[in-house]
Nucleic acid binder design. Structure first.
Lengths: 239, 239
DNA sequence: CTCCAACCGTACGTTGACGCACAGAGCGTC
DNA sequence: GACGCTCTGTGCGTCAACGTACGGTTGGAG
């Protein structure tokens, strides 16, 4: 297995003690996560728990009228499909690969068995959950109170945190769907950022030129979520 | 203990097998939940897990500028402080009693011990979590896409589901804080509902006159959440 | 009974986002 | 190297919600 494909690229897997990791390893099935892949559909039965190693997965909720909103963003710091180990077998939201990459997955049955052991894996997964919840609640707050410009900043930073480079691949149309706003609204907000020299934009390719300024402009929502993530998933995660 | 004060009024406690319930009983400390009580403050250490038996607790997030948004509503179907059994010791949100009642609480240490046993209590709490998450995500969606009128309907139904009568006690000011909108916006929306004969409103007292019509007018968000609650917390919850 | 505080209703200008419509601009393809 | 598709920019009119300001009503306290 090449160095670029190592389960330990996922921070939760990396935080497992050696013994637990070794036991899990044979069950970790490598998967590629091409852009647009639907990891699981709204309401359908969950068959695997996914550990992204690279790339980004979005949790989306699509309404009856077709409009959608992104609920959370998951990269190599987390897992996709938390309902699985909580005894739910499906969720009303949908998981879509929003930035291509790869990862590993665990069969539902294996996960369940391992989880029931009550060891480090259980603790890690449980500890991750409130961090994810923080992200969801902050999404709700941001949707209510903040302007599109700020939400765009937040969204860019969320992706940036989960990618190795300062280049993002996402069209304005895509961003609009994630934020649940008009495409034109994103055009305008992105134009402002470009004007101010924070990003460069071109046909689906965004280069972040000045991250500090981006952080200066984003709403508090970003920091709140990041703090929770850092707090609950430190290197020193004691299990 | 009078019949009106029974831990089994909380649906999660009621769903516990007799043996587990009996073991827990000595540790369940009765608490009254007066209107406005802050069950726990944003960022502070959680000391107890609360099981509401009557009344309603709101999970709120307050922003730096003082504006706030309600994230979720918890009645006797759930528990307040889920971060506790997931290994978090605090949350960025705040829990406030929004309709007076009473309940029971469990010390953090006791909860932790019981949870680690991996028995029915653990399963029940874990199963409740995705239902709560569904409520949070749907709040995010609703905030983004739906008009104040519909959100008011949703909010009224959420309270109605958790109270024995069709009378709610909440001022428009309070509702506005929960929905994160202007008080005047609530005045208008409530006026519409009153006009249509669905509710009667008077100085902090709302009487729901026609629940079916209210349900006909509410956005899909309400049904989505209710379905998740019913699915994950049926009477027959097998543990 | 009177007064006061809390609660509710209304009004008006402002604004941010929407819906729609269309014009340019880059990139791949044949 | 021209065509076509996708992506981005712009320009309207419309509208829901906002901020602000004030008047009216009600219920309880003294």
């Amino acid at each position: 297995m090449p160095a670029s494909h190592n389960p330990k690229q996922n921070q939760l897997l990396a935080a497992l003690p050696a013994a637990d990791y070794e036991r899990l390893l044979p069950h970790l099935e490598p998967v590629t996560l091409p852009l647009g892949l639907v990891v699981f559909e709204s309401g359908s039965k969950l068959r695997h728990l996914y550990f992204p190693a690279s790339g980004i997965v979005s949790l989306l909720y699509a309404m009856e009228d077709g409009a959608s909103t992104e609920i959370a963003v998951i990269g190599n710091e987390g897992v996709v499909g938390i309902a699985l180990f909580m005894g739910g077998e499906s969720t009303p939201s949908r998981a879509v690969v929003q930035s291509a990459g790869h990862g590993y997955r665990l069969k539902a049955a294996v996960l369940k068995t391992e989880f029931e052991l009550g060891g480090p894996l259980q603790h890690l997964l449980l500890r991750y959950t409130p961090a994810l919840i923080a992200q969801m609640t902050q999404t709700a707050v941001c949707n209510r109170h903040h302007a599109v410009d700020q939400q765009l900043c937040r969204r860019l930073l969320l992706s940036l945190d989960r990618l190795p480079s300062n280049k993002l691949t996402m069209t304005q149309e895509l961003i609009a769907n994630m934020l649940g706003v008009r495409r034109e609204g994103v055009t305008e907000a992105a134009g402002n950022l470009q004007e101010a020299g924070l990003i460069r934009y071109s046909r689906g390719h965004i280069t972040v030129l000045d991250r500090p300024k981006l952080e200066a402009q984003v709403c508090e929502c970003y920091a709140v979520v990041k703090r929770e993530m850092d707090r609950l998933l430190p290197d020193k995660t004691a299990c």
